[in-house]
Design a protein around this nucleic acid. Structure first.
Lengths: 189, 189, 189, 189
DNA sequence: TATGAATGAGTCTTCATTCAT
DNA sequence: CATGAATGAAGACTCATTCAT
């Protein structure tokens, strides 16, 4: 029950923040969209920043769970990355607002104590790094700098999304996975 | 004299906004950085929004002037685009803060009446479009949709910068021009 | 509940504005007098101007309601006007601060878009005009220009109050109704 | 020469203040109207308040001078008052803006240390009082309270002007002198 | 004397957050 | 848990006043 309300707030926040931007969004706006009173939000979140943090945390943990699940499928590194990207981009096509928030508001914490978002992103990057390390160990990919590769891979995802959201069409989100894989083609043996 | 002060404000604003983000920046911060009183800023700008608008306007007009100058050199379309990108990326390497502002804060006007920034960007895109049209007329490039190409070209510039600013190194800004030209290689006859 | 707070703000504002004048009054002053926080005022009024507008609107609508009630009593025009004035001047004797505000601050909207105050005053004048028209139709008063008469009548009310507030004594507010009736004596048949 | 500039500022201030009200008038507005720089005003006046004070002082002293001149003509009290009023109302008909300022802005000093305006007004009232005292001594008027009479006389002048400025026509300023004299008719023996 | 750019104290207004119901 | 009125700190903006030229 309680989780339903928290999810409702999260979804409402994604919508409003996607439309207005985090700084232009008032807690009242989120409450209105969620058809709740402002006070109610504070029963689930301690601050406005935490609402945004939670959006990132929630989505990043889904990605990490996705990675964990894929790991059990014993796929080749290439197929692994392809499947991960497919899932990620599918989610964003289904919910472009989420993409807008994840890409545009990631910088909000600059000059704030709150680096929970960055920590979450780094956890995700760490998991990607592990994939590359494993690929190297399995001799599927060349002996590259796995950390740098993970950062680059993550950055590309962001770039494609940013680009796709700028474009009038959202086509880019369909071709995104292949586009990214092509850019790292040279690392595969 | 007056223009010196306005330029000082513009430069101070770029620095502070790059560091803190537009919404986290107070007028007092800009004034402090420019070693001026807040009131002085309002002798040159009517609002905080206008300060940011002016940064975009100023830089975009420089780019447009750059395009006009290059036009007089009667270069091939490929060399024209390469030179334009070289200038642009050189400026950003010399002043990364400017890049950060131009890329990260371009969305600030969402949900605001103020779309001066977007208008300025569209003017620049229009100029790029003219270049592609001319290239088609001179039979240097294939018969593509010039407008779409211009949008894509502009989007790529943004993407590279975003990516470069995310990376710890700024190397990307060196290779950026070639990177972009390579992505549109297929349009040249 | 909510209306209680709004009324408290209205009353506090009348007191402070009567003492200091609208332009010398700070929102903080009104809040202090009402024993509320400044922010609370903005839960009921969108701006400082609107607080003043509301004072006028509120009082003018009371006068209009007073006229409507008197109309049902089927009085002669002379007695009607006398009773209306009696009520009005009694209110001001009971709350001289209100008189001060209504008379002194009516001009605040000059050079402002906000002419709500003037619109409200004109509504009241229109009701007075109707009274005169009715008097003419009932052959109780001469065939005068009803609109001009209403304006004059209203102006006299204002004049008496202004005068009374200048005088050390407030006696004028007692004799006011008769004073005004005497000045329009010639219109009665 | 210097006095010409000071007069220019005074006249410009009367115009702007009549149109916008004292509180809505900025020093820059006065400077613009006078076709001078703001700084110049401060060579002649020490503050914004002082500009308004000066307008009152200047006009009140003219009235006092007018009274002094009339005194030398050895007129009857009635004719004296009539002539004084004629002059005053003629001036206002010629310069209605002046009337607007004198009537509407007389209250600005409330809650301010600055009561120079009130002092000047009281000086004028004192002179009027002397006229009534003299009239009593010359047995031309009844043994009334001269001070109260002067206050009433002065208040009537203000009232008429306020009324005349509210009315669409300015006719009232023509009949004003007679109107006032009639109201104090009973004091003459 | 005239100028007008620079100053910063003073206010309005916003909005995240609290808390009594 | 839900509510939404009350709170007040924070920040944009104004404008009288100063002063170097």
């Amino acid at each position: 029950m309680a989780q339903e309300t928290k999810a409702r707030i999260r979804k409402a926040a994604i919508e409003v923040i996607a439309e207005e931007g985090f700084f232009n969004t008032r807690m009242q706006d989120i409450a209105d969209r969620a058809q709740l009173a402002v006070g109610t939000i504070y029963n689930y979140f301690s601050s406005k920043d935490e609402v945004l943090s939670y959006i990132f945390k929630y989505e990043i943990q889904r990605r990490m769970k996705s990675i964990s699940e894929l790991k059990e499928q014993k796929l080749s590194t290439r197929r692994f990355l392809k499947k991960f990207l497919d899932r990620h981009f599918l989610t964003l096509r289904e919910n472009p607002n989420l993409g807008r928030v994840l890409v545009r508001e990631k910088e909000f914490s600059r000059a704030k104590d709150n680096n929970e978002i960055k920590e979450n992103m780094n956890s995700l990057i760490k998991m990607l790094e592990d994939i590359f390390v494993e690929g190297i160990n399995k001799a599927e990919i060349k002996d590259i700098n796995a950390h740098l590769m993970a950062v680059y891979f993550f950055g590309s995802m962001q770039g494609i999304i940013e680009f796709a959201l700028t474009e009038p069409e959202i086509e880019m989100l369909v071709d995104g996975p292949d586009f990214i894989i092509k850019r790292i083609e040279h690392i595969f043996k």
